[in-house]
Amino acid sequence: MSSAVHVVYALAAGGTLEDRPVYNKTRCFETFPFPAATPEAKTRIRDLAEQLDAHRKRQQAQHAGLTLTGMYNVLEKLKTGEALNAKEKVIHEHGLVAVLKTLHDQLDRAVLDAYGWNDLTPLLEVVNGNAAPDESGLPATRDDCKRALDDALLERLVALNAERAAEEQRGLIRWVRPEFQIPASGQQQPQPARQLEIDTDERAAVAAKPGLRRPWPAALPAQVKAVAEVLIAARAPLAEEAIAACFTGRGAWKKRLPQIIDTLVAVGRVRRRKDGLAVLA
């Protein structure tokens, strides 16, 4: 759950409080498509997660003023290569943030390997500050690499979510902890699959009302969420042109709308009518 893969999914599926992300168990955890990992991969991930948890607790126990927020702010600076100020250097020392970073790096690689998505490792290494974006075929900057990684992860997770839903309809449930989940379910029959929901609130819906144009988001998770908000606000079927008219932006971003709508269809949030119009499911 501490891996970059889950963070990307949780930020897209979860809610917000003002401008802060909120982790919603129903949306972020219960719909998350875990990898069909081998026993060895599961053991590796579990061991790294336990080491990560133990490290944070140990350092906080040794230094009363040390906070997770402080540690992770310093960790982010290590990834970006920014210089640490005096206060941050103390946090770096007390929290052994270099060790924290190493554990997160190892966990991210192990999770990618469990999914079989090792082709994304070069992007991950740049995002985690372990490589420069100067290799052939990689985006030019770390920010560009992060957007590319986030987009690729979300696309694959949404597709895998749809696969898991289809499997559960056929009776195949990939229990995460079967010894607890099966007895708790009260039955052996497959449960209705929970689909990825794109969280929206009233303020977002108001902002997406037709006639109020807003900038087209740069990152795919925000794009998916924005399109869902437009459809919620419209409360009626919309053509792709009508959805595009709710946004401003230059470039070829409109070409991505069909893919985004298809993503929302795949996760059960939107359906396409026979006339091609998109409407909330």
Rank of each mutant, 00 (worst) to 15 (best):
A226C: 05
P133A: 05
Q195T: 13
E241S: 15
A266C: 11
A152T: 10
P139R: 11
V279Q: 05
R250T: 11
L48W: 00
G137M: 06
I260T: 08
A159Y: 10
R164M: 12
H63T: 01
L264A: 06
T38S: 14
P39Y: 01
Q59Y: 06
P237N: 08
K87I: 04
L75V: 07
L196S: 08
G81P: 03
R164C: 10
E168F: 02
N24R: 14
Q189K: 13
G65Q: 14
L154K: 00
L149R: 07
L153Q: 08
A219C: 05
E125A: 13
A278Y: 06
L75A: 11
A148E: 15
K79T: 08
A204H: 00
R271Y: 01
A219W: 10
P39S: 05
E202A: 06
R109F: 11
R56H: 02
T38P: 01
G276Q: 15
R250C: 04
L160V: 01
A219F: 04
L231A: 04
V158D: 12
V224E: 11
F247H: 01
P192M: 01
L264H: 04
V279S: 01
G276N: 13
E240L: 13
A114L: 01
E240N: 09
I182C: 00
K57Y: 10
E197S: 14
T31A: 13
G116A: 09
V224T: 13
N24P: 07
E125G: 04
A83K: 15
L123R: 03
D53Q: 06
G268K: 06
K225V: 04
A222F: 03
L277C: 11
I91D: 05
V90L: 14
T121Y: 03
E241K: 13
I232K: 14
R213D: 00
T200S: 14
R58N: 12
L154C: 00
V111H: 05
V99D: 15
A236V: 00
T121V: 11
G70W: 02
A86T: 02
L138A: 07
A219D: 15
H94K: 06
P39K: 04
A219T: 10
A98K: 14
L196T: 11
D199R: 12
V97C: 02
E202W: 05
H104F: 04
D275G: 09
Q51N: 04
A228H: 15
R109M: 09
L84A: 06
H55N: 04
E167V: 09
N130Y: 03
